[in-house]
């Protein structure tokens, strides 16, 4: 592989890492901080992606939209739409136990996928939506950078923003209340915290972050179809990344994303070269098997992840004023 090929591969690798890292940080807000079990990540991912795509694409005979809005409007729309979805789900499921929340969230995600696949007028169904532009392609071209490189820069900028947001939230009194609720709900309630409201806040913020990830995915990849939002890609990989890295720890979430994405995309490369032709059709299931077994090993051997959660440093007293 020549140098340009490697460079292009690295750009695509890190763009996907950046997008997945945003999803993982969103999940960490829900599961790592406040202990809410969401296995419908793919649903929020999809809502963000499709909202932004519908807002920003030029007119098309195949689906609604044609608003041709700028990139940032798409992003804001995606964040608002997924936050609203999170608000609705969080409100409905507020009183439910973990198991029920898990079943309810995956139900929402699968129902959304059915809607995306069946409502042709809205999303062009399984044929998918295309012509989604990469962010500020003209601007980056003028600087002599490819549009893929530009996407990477934009994704990184958003990732840095989200990271500082969630890290600040973690250290704040708000984050402490979240952990208190996660560890001991009756005690948190006895100290006068409104448990329902705090949990709902974490759920909505996490959902909004996932929606942002979805919008960035749509603009980088340029094409959306229901396939991309199967539980495998949209939910399972995100969970494995968080568990491997260490739930509750934002740095761990980032580390887990890089490692698992390296294994996931590396195994594709490895199997395409190592497997004999007769077995090449099996590389997909083999890769899933690999990641699935890896998850079981982590859960048995190191359930706290590579970077376990640490008690945060409190903000020094002087800085608060």
């Amino acid at each position: 592989m020549e140098l340009a090929g490697i460079a292009a591969y690295l750009v695509s690798f890190f763009t996907f890492v950046g997008i997945y890292a945003i999803l993982v940080l969103g999940l960490n807000m829900q599961w790592g901080f406040s202990g809410q079990f969401n296995i419908g990540v793919a649903g929020f991912f999809a809502v963000g992606a499709y909202t932004s795509a519908i807002l920003t694409t030029p007119e098309s005979p195949w689906h609604v939209g044609g608003y041709g809005m700028p990139f940032l409007v798409g992003i804001v729309g995606a964040v608002i739409a997924s936050a609203l979805l999170g608000l609705l789900i969080g409100w409905v499921t507020a009183r439910l136990r973990t198991d029920y929340l898990a079943i309810a969230t995956i139900g929402i995600a699968e129902t959304l996928r059915l809607i995306i696949a069946n409502e042709r007028w809205l999303t062009n169904g399984v044929r998918g939506m295309s012509n989604i532009e990469r962010p500020y392609a003209d601007f980056f071209n003028a600087l002599g950078l490819s549009s893929a490189m530009g996407s990477l820069i934009v994704v990184c900028a958003f990732l840095v923003m989200v990271y500082f947001l969630v890290e600040r939230a973690r250290q704040s009194p708000w984050g402490r209340v979240q952990r208190a609720i996660r560890e001991n709900e009756p005690a948190a309630e006895a100290s006068g915290k409104n448990i329902g409201r705090f949990r709902l806040q974490a759920f909505v913020v996490g959902s909004a972050i996932m929606g942002l990830g979805g919008a960035l995915y749509a603009h980088y990849f340029g094409f959306l179809s229901p396939e991309a939002f199967l539980p495998l890609y949209g939910t399972f990989l995100v969970w494995v990344m968080l568990i491997a890295g260490g739930s509750g720890n934002n740095k761990g979430a980032l580390l887990g994303t890089v490692i698992i994405w390296a294994i996931w995309s590396g195994s594709e490369f490895l199997m395409s070269t190592a497997l004999p032709d007769a077995l090449s059709g099996q590389s997909g299931p083999l890769r899933v098997l690999l990641i699935g077994v890896l998850l079981q090993v982590i859960l048995i051997k190191r359930p706290e992840g590579l970077l376990p959660e640490k008690a945060p440093k409190t903000v020094p007293f002087g800085k608060q004023k």
């Binding site: 198991d99 083999l286 098997l289 077994v293 079981q296 859960l299 048995i300």
Partner: peptide, 26 residues
């Protein structure tokens, strides 16, 4: 993992679903 909290079993079974399905495919 039974001795830890049941929710870890839930995560594990979600992964196990994909493991079993890929075995069927293979």
């Amino acid at each position: 993992i039974r001795r830890t909290q049941p929710v870890i079993l839930l995560i594990s079974s979600f992964g196990m679903a994909l493991v079993l399905r890929s075995i069927v495919q293979i």
